[in-house]
Design a protein around this nucleic acid. Sequence first.
DNA 1: CACCCTTCTTAACTTAAGTGAAGGAATTTG
DNA 2: CAAATTCCTTCACTTAAGTTAAGAAGGGTG
Lengths: 193, 193
Amino acid sequence: MEDVLFDFIARYISLTEEEKKALIDLDLFHSAKKGAVLLEEGQRSKQGYFVLKGCIRTHYTIEGVEKTTAFFTEMEGLTPPCVLDGKPSTYAVSCVEDTILTISDPSMEAEIFQKFPKFETMCRVLSEELLVKQQMDFDAFKTSSPEQRYLDLLEKRPDLIQRVPQYQLASFLGIQPQSLSRLRARVVEKSKH
Amino acid sequence: MEDVLFDFIARYISLTEEEKKALIDLDLFHSAKKGAVLLEEGQRSKQGYFVLKGCIRTHYTIEGVEKTTAFFTEMEGLTPPCVLDGKPSTYAVSCVEDTILTISDPSMEAEIFQKFPKFETMCRVLSEELLVKQQMDFDAFKTSSPEQRYLDLLEKRPDLIQRVPQYQLASFLGIQPQSLSRLRARVVEKSKH
DNA sequence: CACCCTTCTTAACTTAAGTGAAGGAATTTG
DNA sequence: CAAATTCCTTCACTTAAGTTAAGAAGGGTG
């Protein structure tokens, strides 16, 4: 499983054996079962997650109803706000599938950045890229209808539609599960024509 | 105007006079008039922007209609996707007000990162913070109605509602200008009762 | 294999946003 | 200061999402 991470890192920087060993020694690798909760609402955690295989999601409980806002699959990472601001987490993180992931915290990052500065460069580049990507996703969300957002998802992340329950997809798309169900029926009807 | 930037940086790292001078020597500081276009749709620019005073926005032209998706005011920065991917820009950037800002490019960053590594640490921390903040904004957008989003904006960014035209605010909130107008009338009516 | 619980679909009704059009501020410009 | 343009509001109508409820389908467990 380590190799999956190292292959990903190799896209950005090249690692010596020494550096790989330092990473492995941090004991980053974990696995979790489908449904397992990695972070609960209200918890003050310092853990960041990076998915190697599987899928995790962030979800809120709003007026008693669960709302899923984001999914993270292979080679995607998440740092919850509580890691940076120290406040109780506003959302929960749990596994959509059996998942293998790395779990790290700021002290582990500080240690590795200090030993190998190029790691920090990689993390800067990564988070700049993510920021830009997310801004584009947000823009696309704002400028399109639920139906268009669903069609875009069908095209760009067909896997998500397969691996995630509809009611989680619905709130991810910013609508109610019933609306997603109706919307899909509408789309099928149109494509029949 | 330099001092505004240095005060901001001082929140993250402390600068020597030498470092301040290196920054000033990069010739970062610019001013632009209200309405000025900093980046046009389709352009391949390598410029990033950081607002010291004033306001800029990103906007798309979709089926002939302008859609504003984001505003950047004092101490907020924007790196357009084209800077990272080299493709023609999908959106335009222009000034909502007369604006003083820094304009930089990757080569300037590389130069300063090389001379003073702590700048890179600051940029990493900044973009990690921004990423987290934006994820929360996106989550809030997905989980609330246009009316709730407007009320949240009233509370968290009352200045934006003052300084930005309604039709730009509307698409920022993900709705049509007419809907924002109606929604505001509804809110006023409710608060009267 | 049968039961249970979760998830998905359908339907009828309500509410709010989209659309097209027109008129009224407000701001800019000659 | 008047004309022009841009921006905002209102209205009537259409379309789609929210809501409430009920039942069907699917998966997991004893």
